[in-house]
């Protein structure tokens, strides 16, 4: 294979990244959920500095994709929305991270 063709093939992996995860706000949300077992809505709200509506909308997208599990319950009569990564979400995030690492290794500069 000519060198140029190989190079092109290497860079096509950029377009294969999971775009759902690639969005900065969702990437931040998933990063926090990746390091915890579960967290509530308020914790993520404070850590990500997103607005309630924005965070809620991103979480709904992630839930729809099966990456995040949203559990609403009452703790001492106080409502708590517990969020956690699903097995699939954890795997997708790990794969995304590995792919990005590979891409950055190949990038010039």
């Amino acid at each position: 294979m000519p060198a140029r063709g190989k190079e092109t093939k290497n860079f096509t992996t950029i377009t294969d990244v999971d775009r759902l995860i690639h969005e900065p706000a969702r990437l931040l949300i998933l990063s926090y959920l990746y390091v915890v077992e579960s967290a509530d809505f308020l914790f993520l709200l404070r850590q990500t500095n997103l607005t309630r509506g924005n965070l809620s909308s991103h979480l709904m997208k992630l839930e729809k994709a099966g990456y995040v599990n949203i559990e609403k319950k009452f703790v001492d009569k106080i409502p708590r929305t517990l969020l956690s990564l699903t097995k699939e979400g954890r795997k997708a995030f790990h794969e995304y991270s590995q792919r990005m690492k590979k891409i950055f290794r190949k990038l010039p500069g």
């Binding site: 390091v35 915890v36 579960s38 967290a39 509530d40 308020l42 914790f43 404070r46 106080i78 517990l82």
Partner: peptide, 10 residues
């Protein structure tokens, strides 16, 4: 937890 939020680590 009601003020800062709740997170459970592994």
């Amino acid at each position: 937890y009601p003020r800062i939020g709740y997170a459970r680590f592994k």
